[in-house]
Design a protein around this nucleic acid. Sequence first.
DNA 1: GTGGCTAATGCAACCGGTGTCAGAACAGGG
DNA 2: CCCTGTTCTGACACCGGTTGCATTAGCCAC
Lengths: 333, 333
Amino acid sequence: MAATIYDIARQAGVSSSTVARVLRGDTKGDRKDSAERAARIRQIAQNLGYRPNLRARAFSEQRTRGVGLLYTDDSWVFEGVNDKVIQGLVQQLRKHEYHLLLLPIDDGGEWEDVVLGGHVDGCVTFQFLPEAVRAGIRDTSLPCVLLGDNSDPELPHIVVDDVGGAYTATRHLISLGHRRIGLYFHHTIKPHCSVPQRREGYENAMREEGLQPQIWHCGEDEMMAALIRKSDRPTGLICYSDLESTLIRHATWQYGMNIPGDLSLIGFNDKFATKYMTPPLTTVGFDANQIGADGAQMIIHSLNGNNSQDNGHRKAVTIKTQLIVRGSTAAPA
Amino acid sequence: MAATIYDIARQAGVSSSTVARVLRGDTKGDRKDSAERAARIRQIAQNLGYRPNLRARAFSEQRTRGVGLLYTDDSWVFEGVNDKVIQGLVQQLRKHEYHLLLLPIDDGGEWEDVVLGGHVDGCVTFQFLPEAVRAGIRDTSLPCVLLGDNSDPELPHIVVDDVGGAYTATRHLISLGHRRIGLYFHHTIKPHCSVPQRREGYENAMREEGLQPQIWHCGEDEMMAALIRKSDRPTGLICYSDLESTLIRHATWQYGMNIPGDLSLIGFNDKFATKYMTPPLTTVGFDANQIGADGAQMIIHSLNGNNSQDNGHRKAVTIKTQLIVRGSTAAPA
DNA sequence: GTGGCTAATGCAACCGGTGTCAGAACAGGG
DNA sequence: CCCTGTTCTGACACCGGTTGCATTAGCCAC
C-alpha cells in the first residue's frame, strides 16, 4: 500500500540504491545532472507520500532507535516527581530521534523478550532493579543507565544527593533549635536505594551535634503514637519523601496538632502539591527533569558506540538538592 | 552474535523453516520422529540461548506489537491520575503482548515518522488531539482510540461521565443548602474536552433549581477576589479538577478563610493526595485505571483485524463517576 | 580526442524472520 | 505391494530498507 523506494526508483528510472542515498542525504550533489536527478527523486517521493518503513530500517540497521524504561510497581513511575523524570527523558531522547518504551518488569519475564529480543537499543531503569533483571541485562551487554539507583557501580547511573539533602534538612531543624529530631520511612518503602543514603545524611548531622538519631520505619499510626507522647516526643521530623509528610500532616490535623507549632515537618522531593499544603511544606527539592535529561544523554552516549571503555565520559551523575524552606518548620515551642 | 534459526537449523541438520515452525509451536507433533526432532530443536535453541529477533519478526509480520501514546503537554490534565490511566493501559496491553511507546506531539512533526512510519501498529491519544494530528492519522487509517476526548465521533473513544459528575457535585451542594454555587476553571485550562461537559452538568443542576450559574475561568487571585466579597460571594465552589481545589484551598488558608465553614469546595479526579488535604477534599472520582484498561482492549480489538465495520463492538465507553464526600463540604453558615 | 581521476550509479548481498507450495515420508486399506 | 490421502519437511520468495563494491559517467588537462 505505502510507497517504497522501489516505487520511486521505477518512476524515476533509477536504481533503488540511488533513491535510498538521495533520500538519506548521502548525495554530495556536486554535479549538475546529479543534482537534477536528486531533485526529481525527491519530488516523486513527495508526490507518492513516501515515508520510510521504520520496521524495514530497524531490521536493516539492526537498531530501532527505541529505549526501554524498565520499572517495577514499587517505583510508581508517574507518581510525584517521577513524571518530570520521564518528561525529561522523553524530551531529551526525542532530540536525538529516540523514543521511549514503557516496560514494567513485575510479573513474568516478558520484558526479556522485548529488551533482549532487540526491540530496544538500550534501556533505562527506574529506582529499583531486581537482581535477575540486572543479570540478564549484563549478559547481553546492552547499554543501560540506572536512574536513582547506584546499586551497581559498573553501570552508569544518576542519583540524587540524598546524603547531602538529608544532612541539610537535619541541620535546618538543628539550627532552629530542635534537639529531638526523627527520621521517618513509611513501612511500604522498601529498603533499597536512597533509604541508606538519606539515613546517612541524617545521622551525620545528628552525630555532629551529639544528638541521638531516632529512626522509624512503620505505618503512620505507629509514627503518630510516638509523636503524641508527651515527654520525649520528637519536635522535628524528617520524612523520607513527601508521601510521608502528607500522611503525617493529615494525621496531625486529625489529632489537632499544629504544624509547625507542635511539630516541624520536612519532606523530600518537592512534588508539585507540597507548596500548596497547609501549611506549605518545607522539603528537599531537586531538578527531577534533569535526572531524565541526563539519563537520556548517557544512554545516547552509550548507544553511539562509546559503550565500552568510555573516554572520560562521566559514568555517574549526582543531582544536587536544595532545601526549600516553607511554613512547616519553625523553632520548637 | 546472537543465535538465529539458521544456526539452530545447521546444528540440528534440518531446514530453517522446520526450526521456525517448531519454535512457534505450529507443529502438530503426532508422529514419533517428528516429536523427537522438535524436542532436539528446542534443546539446541535453549543451548544456544536463542531468542527470536524482534526486529526481523516485525519486518516480516509487518507489525511491531507496539502502541503509541500520543499526548501534548496540555494533556497532563488528568493530572495526578495520569499514572493510573497509563498503568491500566500498559498492564492490559501487556496481557496481549503489546507494549506502549510514549510519543509527545508538541513541537515538530516527528511523531509522524514514528507513527506513520510503522513503528507502532496503532495509537491511543490522550485528552487533546490537535486537528493536524487527527487528520494525519485518519489518512493512514491507523487504528486509534481517543482517551478522555470525544471530539471525533468517528473514532472509538473513552470518556469520563463529566456531565453526570458535575451534576452530582452541584446537587450535593444544593442539598446541603447552598444557593450561590460557582464553577471554577483555572485560566491555564484550555477549553477543550471535559470543559463543556462539566459545565453542562453544573448548569443543568443549577437551572433545575432556578439558580444562577456563575462560571469563572481565571487565575486563582481573581477567583479569590470573588470569594472574599462580602455580599454575594459563592458559598460553594465546584472546581474543574483537584488542581483548582488545591490552589483555592491554599489561597483560602492564606486569607484565613475556613473550609468548609466559609466555603464548601469540591474537586474532580480524586487524585491520591486529595484525601489527605486539610480538610480532606470532597471530590468526583472515577476509575482511572479502567480508562486505560478499556482503551487497551479497544485498540487491541481494532488491531486484531476488526478495524473496519465493527461487529457490535462498543465504539464509545463512558466511565462513570462517583461523588466522594469528605470534609471540604458542609452546609453554608 | 583521449587518458586519467573522481564522483555517481547500479547490482547484489544482507539483515532474520514468516508463509506458501511442491514434494517427500508415512500409515492404512485393498 | 501399490495406491491414496494425510502429515510433515525443505526450498524459496518476500518484507524494504542499507551498504560494499564494481562499474559507469562526468570533468578536466593535455
